[in-house]
């Protein structure tokens, strides 16, 4: 098994240089903090702090309902694995405006760094392909991030990118964690834009 070298704190700004171009849904914990820092907790971002597993499905609902916008899910390996069937649903629905980025640190960072399944042999790249997704990319070192950024904008959607990162610290951004306020912020901003 390859040893991860990417520091997640350096990842998203390189991978998504134009975050305002996207509607973004994240899973809980580290992925939410990293994305909140990327967008300054913007009104195009809905982060979760619970409902583990819901990010991919929620992003799919956004993508199918806003076909003129690019939609991005950013989540962690533990969150993704709580709803792996969601990848099959995405592949079946095949939205042309949807990308999933999985920040895979191989541990449950929020609860103390306990080893997760991807540290025990589970391969999310293969799972994504086996779920029927065809635009799938695995990123294991910094040199591949620029190529992955092109993949997000240039390959056929839906897309899935798994990025192997070290199990170091996440962004420390303090985001709004009131789900009702975040729903209204996102919804009102979107509806004002169309």
């Amino acid at each position: 098994m390859s040893v991860a070298t990417i520091d997640r704190r350096d990842l998203l700004a390189k991978l998504i240089p134009n975050p305002d171009d996207y509607l973004i849904v994240t899973g809980l914990a580290g992925a939410a903090k990293d994305a909140a820092e990327l967008t300054d907790d913007g009104d195009n971002l809905f982060t979760m702090a619970g409902a583990m597993g819901a990010a991919v499905s929620m992003g799919l609902g956004v993508a199918m309902s806003a076909p003129d916008r690019q939609v991005l899910v950013i989540t962690g390996d533990g969150e993704l694995m709580m709803n792996m069937g969601g990848l099959a649903t995405v592949a079946s629905a095949a939205p042309k405006n949807f990308s999933i980025i999985c920040i895979d640190n191989g541990v449950h960072g929020e609860t103390g760094g306990q080893l997760g399944h991807t540290s025990r042999g589970v391969d999310l790249e293969m799972i994504a392909k086996g779920s029927g997704l065809t635009s799938v990319m695995k990123v294991t070192n910094d040199d591949e991030i620029a190529e992955a950024a092109k993949f997000i904008t240039g390959s056929a959607a839906p897309r899935f990118i798994v990025v192997k990162v070290t199990d170091g610290p996440t962004a420390t951004y303090k985001r709004n964690m009131d789900p009702t306020a975040c729903r209204l912020r996102f919804r009102n901003a979107y509806l004002a834009s169309v």
Binding site: V25, M58, L60, G61, N83, G85, R183, F186
Partner: peptide
């Protein structure tokens, strides 16, 4: 449960 989140995502837009 996926459908719960799909519908919530639809509501967001």
């Amino acid at each position: 449960e996926e459908g719960v989140a799909v519908c919530a995502g639809a509501d967001l837009v």
